[in-house]
Nucleic acid binder design. Structure first.
Length: 479
RNA sequence: GGCGCGGUAGCCAAGUGGUAAGGCCGAGGUCUGCAAAACCUCUAACGUGGGUUCGAUUCCCACCCGCGCCUCCA
């Protein structure tokens, strides 16, 4: 049984499938105009953990996550790069997939693209216009009339008056002076008429050439793949307003039915205590993390190590902490495997979505993750369990008990998506210069020239890498 | 201005009406050519002021500080 906070009702609710067959989820995916940053991945990672947890719990999740491949940014950037929108977005979609794979994020069951669902979007707009929820402006753009939908603002608890007056009072007031002629500032665009800046990006519609507005695609694609009402809708906290609020308005205006039963919003990732942004130069991608010598799995550990409703503060120190912590789990599992005569690689057979009856020392870890997806507490409980386990291994553990613990850990690792012993598979980049210095040092050490060896080790360390000797070889790690 | 979130050890981060998980770092020890890694042990915390209560870090109020959103944003 999984309980999860719901943004709409502001309560923690039990997750149940409304049709008793599968649990239908829609998550807002990336806009593919560049590499996704680690903040984006925090959200996708948490959605992934939720999905994995549901699988183990037997909820049979069915997930849809879209790709936004047409909007102002993708159009602008593709034109700057001088390539077609489709080639441009494909390039970044591929990188996104590669990053997801390295981060061990399961693929959604369906990953629809906005540009492949133009017809569905036009259909929705047509219905909205026919029923007077939307109007066509003089330039051929179509707007949703917020005043026509009485429930508008229910997700973020906006009241009507605020919506009207925020032009003068809100910090974002300047955003209202744009080129579109809306009847009310709160109204949002469903269809954008073709502008010179759009280049050759346009589709033909009953209202002339143009392209769909951003909010609409999620309504159209979720309806197409999940129906008018589905179980859970997720996204970053910043999407709450206006994106999700708008989705609710559009969708419920058309269907007359509740849109999503449950809303799952993830808090933002901060960097060094503040907002992550390009201009501050603190926006990291997976590439950046790997260039610092950390594996994707370490990043995964770090990004799920805090509770999803709490902003998480990313620092270089916390990356180190994540690395050591992950290492510690691997060490215990390795010891445990040794006890049944298995190797690291054989741990995989314990990692699956079946929930073992006996959770061994890890019952509390499972409770934590089942209760509002408390991954932070879950990891804490795993370490507590590991401590008991380590003592037991030291004292001598029976094979059957070892297997119970391995199965329990395996299911937890599946839920968290922590792929242990992945370090070798995902190669860490070590500069050639460091490799050579390390080899020189190793030769010196072998010939018992310790002073040369130590000097070289210091030099390597001053360049940000450290040497770990084993009896017959050595490894290089990031400091 | 509106809405919302938070302030727990050096850092990160759970949680609870009966004095508080876990990780990192640090210290000591074992080991090692010396280190590192590993293992063992240890230290240390609930923003301030009131209130409710037998008892509050946990509930309420005020204040201080930090952060987010307010129609680009995971």
């Amino acid at each position: 049984m999984i309980h999860l906070y719901d943004t709409l009702s502001r309560t923690i609710k039990e997750l149940t499938s409304s049709d008793g067959k599968s649990f239908k989820c829609y998550c807002c995916g990336p806009t593919v105009y560049g590499p996704a940053h680690i903040g984006n991945f925090r959200t996708f990672l948490l959605q992934d953990v939720l999905r994995r947890t549901m699988e183990i719990d037997g909820l049979n999740p069915y997930s849809v996550r879209n790709i936004t491949d047409v909007d102002d940014k993708t159009i602008r950037q593709s034109r700057e790069d001088g390539i077609s929108l489709i080639n441009f977005t494909q390039k970044w979609t591929e990188l996104f997939h590669k990053d997801c794979e390295e981060l061990n994020i399961l693929q959604p069951n369906v990953e629809p693209k906005a540009t492949e669902h133009i017809e569905e979007q036009i259909n929705l707009i047509t219905q909205l216009v026919e029923n007077n929820y939307a109007y066509v402006a003089s330039d051929g753009s179509v707007y949703f009339k917020v005043s026509s939908f009485s429930d508008y603002g229910k997700l973020t608890k906006l009241d009507k008056r605020e919506l009207q007056t925020q032009t003068e009072t809100s910090g974002g007031a300047t955003n209202f002076s744009d080129e579109y002629d809306r009847e009310s500032v709160a109204d949002f665009v469903l269809w954008k008429s073709r502008k010179p800046d759009d280049g050759d990006v346009f589709w033909v519609s009953p209202w002339g050439e143009g392209r769909p507005g951003w909010h609409l695609e999620c309504s159209a694609m979720s309806m197409r793949y999940l129906g008018e009402t589905f179980d859970l809708h997720g996204g970053g906290i910043d999407l709450c307003f206006p994106h999700h609020e708008n989705e609710i308005a559009q969708s419920e205006a058309v269907s007359g039915k509740p849109f999503a039963h449950h809303w799952f919003h993830t808090a933002h990732l901060m960097v060094d205590g503040g907002k992550m942004s390009k201009s501050l130069g603190n926006l990291y991608t997976l590439e950046d993390i790997k260039d610092k010598g950390f594996s994707a799995m370490v990043l995964r550990y770090l990004l799920i190590s805090g509770h999803y409703r709490q902003p998480l503060n990313f620092t270089l120190d916390s990356l180190h902490a994540a690395k050591s912590a992950l290492n510690k789990i691997e060490k215990s599992v390795r010891d445990l495997l040794k006890n049944i005569g298995s190797k690291e690689s054989e741990f995989q057979k314990f990692v699956n979505s079946e929930r073992p009856k006996d959770l061994g020392f890890f019952e509390k870890a499972w409770e934590s993750i089942s209760h509002d997806l408390n991954t932070a507490s879950c990891l804490g409980q795993i370490f507590s369990g590991l401590k008991i386990l380590d003592a037991k291994i030291f004292a001598g553990i029976s094979e059957s008990d070892a297997i119970i613990q391995l199965k329990a850990l395996g299911s937890l690792m599946y839920a968290l998506g922590l792929n242990l012993f992945a370090e070798e598979k995902i190669k860490i980049r070590i500069p050639e210069e460091i490799k050579q210095l390390a080899e020189k040092r190793w030769q010196a050490k072998k010939s018992r020239d310790f002073s040369t060896a130590d000097t070289l080790r210091d030099e390597i360390q001053s360049k940000g890498w450290k040497i770990l000797d084993t009896s017959e070889s050595y490894t290089i790690e990031a400091l």
